[in-house]
Computed example of a mutant assay.
Amino acid sequence: MAWLGLFAYIKLQVQVSLLRFLLRLRSFKQRLAIRDLLKKSSSIKIPSRDRGRSISANLYLPPKVDPNPKLPFPVLINWHGSGFVLQGHGTNAAFCSRMAQDAGIAVLDCDYRKAPEYPFPAAPNDAEDVLKWVISNPQDFDLDHILLCGFSSGANLALVTSTSWPAKLELDHGVRGVVAFYPPTDLSIPVENRYPPNSKYPRATWLYRLAYDCYIPSAADKKDPRMSPMYADVHEFPAHMMFVTCDGDELCPEAEALGQKVNVGSRSVVLHRVEDVRHGFDGICLPGSREERLRDEVYMSVAKTIKEIVSIP
C-alpha cells in the first residue's frame, strides 16, 4: 500500500534530520575554520538539467593569479563526503585550498543533491552536469587536463562520472585522472558483510544501512555502474587513478578491489592505504595530532600526483 511507502520515507527523513542536526552541533568549530578558508574561493552557480535549479560550487585558483586569467587552467573537480545524505558542501575547503596552492591548478568544489529527499540518480546527475559545464567553458578550463576527486560518497560520484559522462560526449580528451578518498565502490555488498582490515575499529553498520536505504530506490539494480563503479567497464576509467583508503574502514576492501581491477594495461594506479585510522580521518584533526601529520602527508602525495598528471613542474 502507498501509505507504507510514505511511512518508510518519513521514518528515514526523521532519522537523517536528527543525524544532520547532531553532526552540525559537533562540527561547529570546524565550520568556523572553514569560513575563513572559503574566503579564498569564489562562489559559482552551475546550471543543472532541471529548469530553474542550479548547483552550488566554490572555485579555488592558484595563488598570485589574476582573478580573470587569460589562459585556461587544468582543473580538479571535487565532491565532498556525505554518506549520500549529509549536507557537507565546503567541508573539503582545506583540501581544495591546498591543492590550488600546492598543485597549481584550479579546484572546483561542488555540491550535489542528497537523499532521502533526492535519491539516486539525483547525485550522479548533478555531478555529470558539473562536468558538462566545465567542458562548455574551454576559455577557463584546460579540457585536456580535467581531473575528478571526491571523499567517500563524493569519491563514488567522481569514479562514476569518470566513466559515464565522457563516453556520452565521445570526447578525445575525456577525464585525465581520478583521486578517490575511501570510496564506496560496490553498493550491492550487504552492509553486514563489510569489515575493516583493522579489526580493532568498531563497525558503523547502522550508518551505512541508513545511508543506502535513503539513497538506493527499492527497485534499483545495486550493480548499476552509475551506483556501483565496481561494475563499470574497466576500459572506461581514466589513465591515472589514485585511491586513498583507511585500514579501519569497512569500505577499504572494496575500494582497493576496484583499484586492483582497473590496474591493467598502461593505466597508472596508486593505492595509498593509511594505517591505523578510520574512515574520514582527515576531516577533523587536532593540531599536532598523528591524524594531522598523516593528513598532511596524504595531501602532499595527492598534490604531487596531480602535478605529475598535468605535467606541472
Rank of each mutant, 00 (worst) to 15 (best):
R194D: 07
L12D: 15
E250N: 06
S56P: 05
W79H: 13
F151I: 09
S97M: 04
M300I: 07
L131N: 07
G174K: 03
P121G: 13
L210M: 15
E256M: 04
L169W: 05
L159E: 03
G177E: 03
R113P: 01
L6W: 05
N193S: 06
D213V: 06
V107W: 05
D249Q: 07
T185F: 00
A239N: 12
P313F: 02
V16E: 12
V175K: 11
P121W: 11
S268Q: 06
M300G: 14
L171R: 11
F141G: 00
F7W: 11
V264F: 04
K168W: 11
F84I: 12
G150D: 14
G265I: 01
R203L: 03
N78E: 04
K45L: 08
I284L: 10
I306Y: 00
R26K: 14
L210T: 13
L86D: 13
I55C: 00
W3C: 13
D224R: 15
C149A: 11
I77M: 02
T163I: 02
G259H: 04
A33Y: 08
I77S: 01
Q101N: 12
G150H: 05
R35A: 04
A257E: 10
G52S: 10
I77T: 01
L18Q: 13
R278T: 09
L6R: 14
N263M: 05
K223N: 06
S188I: 02
R203G: 07
N68T: 09
W3A: 09
G52C: 07
V160D: 07
F237K: 00
Y182D: 03
D102R: 06
T91C: 02
P63L: 02
S56R: 13
N263W: 07
R31A: 11
A303F: 00
A180F: 04
D247C: 02
C110T: 02
H173P: 08
F120W: 07
T91P: 07
T161C: 14
A106M: 07
R267H: 11
N137W: 05
P74W: 01
H173F: 13
A123T: 14
E192D: 15
R98I: 06
Y182F: 11
S311I: 06
S199R: 14
M300N: 12
A127I: 04
L251I: 03
P217L: 06
E297T: 02
T185P: 04
L187T: 03
V178A: 00
A158R: 01
D36R: 06
P197M: 03
R53T: 11
L76T: 01
D142Q: 13
V277Q: 12
C285M: 12
